[in-house]
Structure formats: C-alpha cells, structure tokens
Design a protein around this nucleic acid. Structure first.
Length: 813
DNA sequence: TAAAGAAAGTTTTTT
DNA sequence: ACTTTCTTTA
C-alpha cells in the first residue's frame, strides 16, 4: 500500500515527518483530514508504530468517526491488533477518568455521572434557589456562564471568590453559587462538561504514575482544528507530550471561530515556542472550491487586521459568479433557497446542498419551505435527539439505575410521568434532605418510614417510585451501590428477574425504563400526535441501545456517557440532500451547493459582536468558514425585513456583503436590490416598494444624538435647496438612523423608495466615492463648504476616515 | 395535584 | 413567534 502517491509535495512532507513537533497550517479545503488520516496510516503500516501508541484528537464525534473511517479504509487488509485512539477531547477525558479518577483523591469514584449543559443548568438553578437568591435578577444562564468561564480560566471557588469579594454583590452571589454548585457536583459524584477536562488535567499534573502511563501509551499524538483549543486542552496536550514531542497539530487561524468559548488562538500562533524544533508545513492548495469562491471568500477575510495572511490557490476552474439575492422577508428568502435547490437538483439529481445561517432560530422558515418543496432535509443543531424531553427523561431513569443519589436526575423524573408527587411533597423532601445531610434518594427512604407531614397518598406514591428505581438498578446490576441491599432484595422479590446480579442487556434496561416506569402508558393515554412522535423517539432510543449491547460490562455506563457527549454537529448526515445548520457547525464540512442566508447587519455579523473589533473579526472569520464550505455554487442572501421576538424589523444588508467584490457577484433579486444600488448600475427606475411598516422600535430616542439630527436636516436642506420633501419625518428619521448609526457601509440600502437622493452630483452623505488608497467608500457626513469641505467616509476594511475634499482626490463612484 | 390559561422572557455561536 | 414558568381553577 502506497500512502504517498496521491498526495501533493507538501502533504507528503507532512505525512513523512515522523518524530518531533509538526505544525500544519492548512487552509480551507487543503486536504487536512486527508493528511491526518494518511499520516496515521503511514505511521502504523509503514513505520510499524503499534496502533495503540497513536492518539488522534478531534472536536466532534463526527470528525472522529470520519477520521476512523478514513484510516480504516487506508489500512484495509492490514492485520491490526487494535485500532488507534481516535476520539474527541471530551471522550478521551472520560476514558482516562473512568480509569483513574480515584487516584485524584477528590472523592470521585469511577462511576461518576456526566452532567451535560442541561443538567448543569438545573443544578445551578437549584443552588440559586437554595441560597435564597433571586433567580430572575441573577439570571441562571448568566450564572452558569460565569461559573463555566471561571472554571475554564482555571479559577477555583477560592480564586473566584477572592476576586469577587470587593467587586459587587452580584459577583459575590455568583461566587456563593459557584461554591455550592461544586459542592453538589461532588456530592452527586458528578462531573460537568468543564470538569471532564479540568479533572483530567489535574490528574495528569498531580499523579506522576498516571501521567507516565499515558505518556508511554501515546507516543504519537495528532490534534485536529488546533486553532480552537483552549488553555485546558493545551495543558492536556502538554502533559501528554512531556516525554516525547511527537505532536502533530493541524489548524488554520482564519478558521478560528470559538474564541467566545475560550479557544486561545495563541496556542497555534505560538506553537513553535511551545514546542522547540517545530517543523512547519503550509498547505495552501485548495482542492475544494472554484477560483471565484476562493477569491470572494479571501476578499472578505482580507478585511481582518489580526491576521498573518496567507494565499490559497487552486487549479480548479473559475466557476460561476457568486449568486446574490435580496429577499423581501425571511419567508421569501426561504422560498428562493428552496426553489434554487430544486433547480440545481433538476440538473444534477444528487447534488448536496447546505443552508448556513448565523443563529439556530433562523432554521424554522427553511424547514417549512423545504417541506413544502418536497425536499428531504437534515437539520443539525437546535434540539438534537438526545435533547428531547422524553429521551432525557429516560436517560435520567438510567442514570438513577446506575446511581440513585444523582439528585438532578431524580428531580427530573420523580414526577414524570405524573404519579402524584407534587410540589409540596418535593419541597418537603428537599427540606429534609438538607436537614439530614442525605441525598434526595436516601431521604425518600427515611420519609417513607417517618411520613410526618405528608399525605398517605404522597407516601404511597413515593414508595412506588422507589420501587421502580430499585427495580431498574437491580436490572443494571448496581444494587450494591444503591443503599441497603437486603432491603432492596426483599422489596424486589415479588418483581421479575430474580437472578439479578448479572446485568441485563442495555436495551432491556432501556425498555424497562420506558415501560415499567409507566412512561409509555402516560404518553399513550394522551392520544395526541405529539405523544405519538415521542413514543417513536423512545423506540429509536431502544434501537440505539440494541447497538450497544455488544459492548461489554459497562455497556449501560457507556450508553449514558454517549448520550451526554454527542453534540449537535454529530447529527450531520453526509448524504442528506439538504443540510440546515449554523455556520459554526459547518466547519470542516463541504458541499457542492451552499447558501449563506440572513447576511444582515446585526444578524451576521451578530449584534452582540458589534462593540468589540476582535469579535467582529471572529464574525468575519465565521463568514469565511461558511463561504469556503462551497465547492461549486455559492449563494448569499439577505432579507429586507425579519421578525425578531415576534416583531417585524427592517434589516440592512451585512457589511460582509459589501466586502465581497461586486464584479464577482451576480444579482438574482427581483427588481432593484442593494447590490444594484451598490453598483450604481440602475439608479433611476425601480418599482415603488411597499410602504415600509412603521417601526415601533423607533419611538423614543434610539438615534445617536440630537446633534446628528440637526446636522442631518441641515445637510438635507443644503443638498436639496429646500426643506422637507414628500416623505414623512419618520422616514427621514429612519434613513437618518441608517446613516448615523454605524460605520457599516451596508447602510447604503436606505429605502430608496422613501428617500431618493436627487442627482448625486456632489459628495453627499449616502453617496459613494473612490479613494486612491482606500478604494470605494460610503460618505457618512459632510461638514464645511468650499476648501474646508470635510467628508467622513467609511471604507470597507479601513474604517472611517475624515478627509478634506480638496486634498483627498476623491472621485464619485 | 393536575390541567388549563396567562404572563414573561427569549436567541449567538457549542465541546 | 415560541417556549417556559407562574397563576388560577377544577
């Protein structure tokens, strides 16, 4: 088997480099997955490295799966004693911790539970409540975010509290919540997402024996998407490569889109400093996209300042221009996309398409349009299978079967399906649990024996709930951890499966959690379509469990872990005709036909990133990632109005549109669009657009300052030689807003129907100029007259400039 | 206690 | 617009 012949020279060098640190700077579509897969195969087959000495780490399960698949394909026919570890950071950590967490000495046992986002939020909520803080004022989500942020920065409670002490009350409150949160995680033998990394790093740091074990095991380490690693992941890699430096990382600074989640770009930028004698290989040939797509994506990302800069090239054909469409609203945008997909698939029946948006909430209209068009689609993100309420409920039962002291899981299902354990009863249990210092589960046992203050009905409901859980844990073969075993067995004796001790198949336990808990019956009696769908989902869960039954002793454990560790990106199905997902989830994927939708100011780039230039650059990189997913055809669209929180708002085109070279774009809009105005090609005739709905949001003073309003009217009367014309004050204020609001050049789409600027023979605000150095820009402000005429102009990529007209040598554009 | 109706908050991106 | 949480009523 020859692993080198179908690689280009750089790729080959990357594969052939064996010992010592290797940094592969791989541009979009340059075949990095290919290189990693080939490298693994080459190491094993050619260099005779035992496969258990190889570790490859990715961010998503899907990427790991893909990698495994490719490696296996390359190694077909080879006799392998085992397969290399190809896994995500998180599952790698789980595997290490399930082995050795007890050596950490923090009181965790190997049977720990994983709390996903949702579990962790519940716990935060409980903590806030029990500390008597005002849930609404604090904002549970914000608190969760703050805690997670602190954890990822490596601040333990003490460090955070120390910092919080003299700041403000809110921070102090969060510190208290953080403390209780950690305490309860430990009490529940639970780790949240962040903990998986934190505890692993701590374990490797503290316990020499463990560190050495994995150092000896992983002699060759590969990391994908290295630009997205955070400091914990970096620390992990550092510990694992302590003995050897056979570390190969692949990444692309232009595709760094997870800074907000703690990704540290300096990990890749300073790789050479971290690992001396690094060999650097650049992969700059793109095999994916047409020249045009590459050019236009490159032009956008070029506007970033924080960038080393690299040039991708391709020998692919020029291809079609990028298609542009301005839609009236979100619905017509979706209809346009659906009909274009149909057109393309008419020509090529198996053409795969992707619709990429900034926020998950945009997906709905596209789902509807695609369904109406009869196009099967796969939606990634939003609520995944394992996030569905019914699935999580059943998983919670399974968690209880493994560990009934998991109070979060218990709280989730103690009364679902409804079995008469209401708020009162639950609060009584919580109160007593706190008094006794017991878990909720243990408290229930006590409460049953001493039912003071509770109705007989409640007590019998608790009894039957307890029976259900005991039954499940017996099936799982975990009764010993569960409390008083004798008690359990005597209570169990009348229920089936007397031969306990041997754990039942995972699928049987799952079935029991669905049937014996009364869950399915409760759904059945609802007799609604929705309940039907839920039952089907549970059937799916059973199917998933059947797949796990081969997996050995800890089958149920792994099954539950899996449910916590699958991510949205893992729902991606490679052969779906249409895939709907966020630009973030699209990273690493490719499609012949790509639509980037909702390219509007405040949406993409998102308004939350408007204040920080660094965040804006991240948005731009995100746009770059989205564009470079396209192989053959790329469409960019935006809508003129869109519903936000149920309110209709006008939206302006994204500045990113403005950063795309106009000559590479083809306008498919009906009537006159932003693009046609941008080109200045047909400024005269346009259809009278529907009168814009009045925007409630413009009541009150949303515009920037009184000064600018005065300025605006002054300018207007100057340029028009008269006062108001035709249009209402409101629409003037609106177009005013779009002018003064920001530097966004996209604001040139200022409702031409309501505010036609007469004969732009002069450099008036709203018109375009060309500057020798900065290129084309939008005039925002005009001050002074004659020789002292000054213009404030915004140039894409250069920002706002104040220019004296006399010296600036501007021309109309 | 559970179901139905009213009010409030929500949306950035996710391993 | 949609979903979650609170309030009322049976």
């Amino acid at each position: 088997m020859d692993f080198l012949s179908d690689l280009n020279p750089e790729q080959r060098r990357a594969v052939e480099h064996i010992d010592g640190p290797l940094l592969i700077l791989a541009g979009a579509g340059s075949g990095k997955t290919r290189v990693i897969a080939h490298r693994i195969a080459y190491l094993i087959a050619q260099k005779r490295v035992p496969s258990w000495n190889v570790l490859a780490v990715t961010f998503t399960n899907k990427a790991a799966e893909e990698m495994r698949f490719r490696v296996q394909k390359l190694l077909r026919g080879q006799e392998l004693s085992s397969t290399p570890w190809v896994s995500t950071f998180h599952s790698l950590c789980v595997r290490i911790l399930r082995q050795d967490i007890e050596k950490l000495g923090e009181g965790y046992s190997r049977t720990f539970t994983i709390y996903d986002q949702d579990d962790s939020l519940r716990l935060v909520k409980n903590c806030i409540k029990d500390l008597g803080y005002d849930e609404k004022k604090l904002g549970q989500r914000a608190v969760q975010g703050a805690i997670s942020g602190a954890k990822n920065r490596g601040e333990d409670v003490a460090a955070y509290a120390a910092r919080a002490e003299y700041v403000d009350e809110r921070r102090a409150a969060i510190a208290r919540v953080y403390e209780l949160y950690e305490e309860r995680l430990r009490a529940n033998n639970a780790l949240d997402f962040d903990d998986l990394l934190i505890k692993t790093v701590r374990l490797l740091r503290k316990v020499t024996e463990v560190r050495e074990k994995y150092n000896n095991k992983f002699r060759y380490i590969l990391v994908d998407e290295y630009q997205d690693t955070n400091s914990l992941q970096f620390a992990l890699i550092r510990f694992l490569t302590e003995k050897q430096q056979n570390i190969c990382v692949v990444g692309d600074e232009d595709q760094s889109i997870y800074k907000w989640r703690g990704a540290d770009i300096t990990n890749i930028l300073n790789f050479e400093q971290h690992f001396p004698n690094t060999k650097i290989i650049r992969l700059e040939q793109n095999y994916r996209s047409t020249q045009t797509i590459l050019d236009i994506a490159g032009a956008v990302v070029m506007h970033n300042i924080e960038r080393k800069g690299k040039k991708l090239w391709t020998s692919n054909p020029q291809g079609e221009r990028v298609h542009y469409y301005q839609a009236f609203d979100a619905e017509s945008e979706a209809r346009f996309v659906a009909s274009k997909i149909l057109d393309h698939r008419q020509e090529q029946y198996d053409l795969r398409a992707a619709v990429l948006y900034r926020t998950n909430s945009q997906s709905r209209v596209f789902e509807e349009a695609l369904r109406r068009a009869g196009l099967p689609y796969n939606i990634v993100g939003g609520f995944s299978f394992y996030e569905r309420m019914e699935v999580r409920d059943i998983i919670a039962y399974l968690k209880l079967a493994m560990n009934p002291n998991d109070s979060i899981a218990l709280g989730r299902v103690i009364n679902s399906p409804p079995r008469g354990i209401g708020k009162q009863t639950i609060e009584e249990i919580e109160r007593r649990a706190r008094d006794y210092g017991l878990s909720h589960w243990e408290t229930i046992a006590v409460v049953i024996k001493q039912p003071e203050g509770l109705s007989t009905r409640a007590v019998s409901a608790l009894k039957s709930f307890r029976k259900i859980i005991l039954h499940l844990s017996q099936l799982a073969g975990t009764t010993d951890g569960v409390a008083e075993r004798v008690d359990a067995q005597s209570e169990m004796s009348e229920i089936r499966n007397p031969k306990s001790e041997i754990p039942a198949d995972v699928s049987d336990i799952v079935k029991a959690a669905i049937l014996d808990t009364g869950y399915e019956n409760a759904l059945k009696s609802e007799k609604t379509d929705e309940a039907e769908a839920r039952i089907e989902n549970l059937q799916e869960l059973v199917n998933a469990a059947v797949d796990y039954d081969e997996q050995g002793i800890d089958g149920l454990r792994e099954f539950i872990d899996h449910s916590a560790l699958v991510s949205d990106a893992d729902q991606y199905k490679r052969d779906a005709p249409v895939t709907l997902m966020t630009a973030h989830s699209a990273k690493g994927l490719e499609f012949p036909l790509v639509f980037i939708v909702g390219l509007e100011d405040g949406l993409f780039p998102h308004s939350r990133s408007a204040t920080d230039p660094a965040e804006l650059e991240e948005e731009r990189r995100l746009c770059y990632v989205a564009m470079t997913r396209a192989e053959k055809y790329l469409y960019v669209t935006h809508a003129m109005k869109r519903r936000v929180y149920g309110e209709e708002l006008a939206s302006e085109p994204s500045q990113f549109l403005n950063e795309m070279p106009l000559e590479l774009m083809e306008d498919l809009s009906r009537g006159n669009s932003w693009l046609s105005f941008a080109r200045g090609s047909s400024p005269v005739e346009y259809e009278q657009q529907e009168p814009r709905k009045e925007r409630k949001t413009y009541e009150g003073k949303t515009y920037d300052s009184v000064d600018s309003i005065a300025e605006f009217f002054k300018q207007r009367s100057q340029q028009l030689g008269q006062g108001e014309r035709g249009s209402s004050t409101r629409s003037q204020v609106q177009s005013l807003k779009s002018k003064v609001k920001s530097a966004s050049p996209a604001n040139r789409n200022q409702t031409p129907g309501t505010n036609p600027v007469a004969a732009p023979s002069d450099f008036v605000p709203g018109s375009y100029v060309r500057h020798v150095k900065y290129g084309r820009g939008l005039v925002l402000r005009r001050e002074g007259v004659g020789d002292s005429l000054k213009l404030t102009v915004t140039f894409p990529g250069y920002g706002q400039k104040k220019l004296v007209q006399k010296y600036a040598n501007l021309e109309q554009a």
